[in-house]
Nucleic acid binder design. Structure first.
Ligand SMILES: [Mg+2]
Length: 270
DNA sequence: AAAACCACCAACCGCTCTCAT
DNA sequence: CATGAGAGCGGTTGGTGGTTT
């Protein structure tokens, strides 16, 4: 048979296969989906004899077998689209892929990492005139650490640092800047929605003069403005941006409490 | 001829989110 | 409120196939 190689895990090779999928395995999964439909991937190994985890089956379907997945080379139009979306959204691959027909998050991510990010490395991309507005996606700003960072990571500054990698530059005027903000999943994720919808919540602005020079300082600053916007200490989300006018910056913070349910606030206590 | 090197990317892993009970 | 299973996310890796030494 096609005992390629890829089984493997440690001891009992009879349990679950890993690694690349063979055409026979693909066919088994395809058959399963045709008769039972997609979903409930853990049942696949029980119904068919396929020695794959449910997780692996789901991934294989979503990224390759599904007829909606394009397999041909990326076009220049796609390059362009992905670059623009990445500028806007950072490494939110699923969101980006949602706007690129036929491409999955994994495809977009791989393609970005191996082709586009390097191609773009020439940091020539600064809009000379009005200095860039720095937009932070602070959706992770669950005000003040609830700690519980896992084992391997040295908790410390982690907080929003990863979001700093998604800083975006764009020319913007001071008035009515809209900010990408984590939408509370309304079925449809649209680039357009992301850009103009700020859900609900309170807003605070503070004129801050110059930008802070360290992330830590900037975070403190954001937190104080977040507090102005009504963020309390537990689990609140928000987004912010820095709006530039001449030499002066204004920190604009939008509180985005996750509760979509009752507009009536649960803020009773404080 | 073979070893060392390298680019690519499918798939894995650890984790979070969501929803049903 | 808790639990748990399924779905989904994004960083990372290891196998593969091509190229250089
Ligand atoms: Mg897509």
């Amino acid at each position: 048979m096609k005992d390629s190689k890829p089984q493997m895990n440690g001891s009992s090779e009879d349990r679950v296969r890993k690694g690349l999928w063979s055409v026979e395995e693909d066919q088994m999964l395809l058959d399963y989906v045709n008769t039972h439909g997609k979903g409930h991937w853990n049942r696949v190994s029980r119904k068919t004899g396929l020695k794959r985890s449910g997780k692996s089956c789901r991934l294989r379907w979503m990224n390759y077998l599904s007829p909606s997945v394009k397999r041909e080379r990326f076009t220049e139009d796609e390059d362009d689209l992905i670059i623009r979306l990445h500028k806007l959204l950072g490494n939110r691959w699923a969101l980006i892929a949602g706007r690129v027909p036929g491409r999955t998050d994994n495809q977009v991510k791989n393609y970005w990492n191996t082709h586009l990010s390097k191609k773009l490395d020439t940091p020539n991309t600064q809009p000379a005139h009005s200095k860039p507005v720095i937009m932070h996606n602070c959706s992770e700003l669950r005000s003040c650490c609830s700690g519980n960072n896992l084992s391997t990571a040295p908790a410390d500054d982690q907080m929003i640092s990863s979001d700093f990698s998604s800083n975006t530059t764009c020319g913007t005027k001071t008035r009515s800047v809209t900010v990408p903000i984590e939408t509370a999943n309304t079925e449809e994720e649209d680039e357009t929605n992301i850009m103009k919808e700020s859900v609900s919540g309170d807003v605070a602005n503070r004129q801050i003069g110059a930008l802070q020079t360290s992330k830590a300082d900037e975070l403190r600053q954001i937190e104080t403005v977040a507090a102005d916007a009504g963020a309390d200490d537990d689990g609140d989300h928000g987004s912010c941006c820095f709006m530039q006018y001449l030499d002066d910056y204004t920190l604009h913070f939008v509180l985005n409490n996750n509760k979509r349910n009752n507009a009536a606030s649960a803020t009773a206590g404080m």
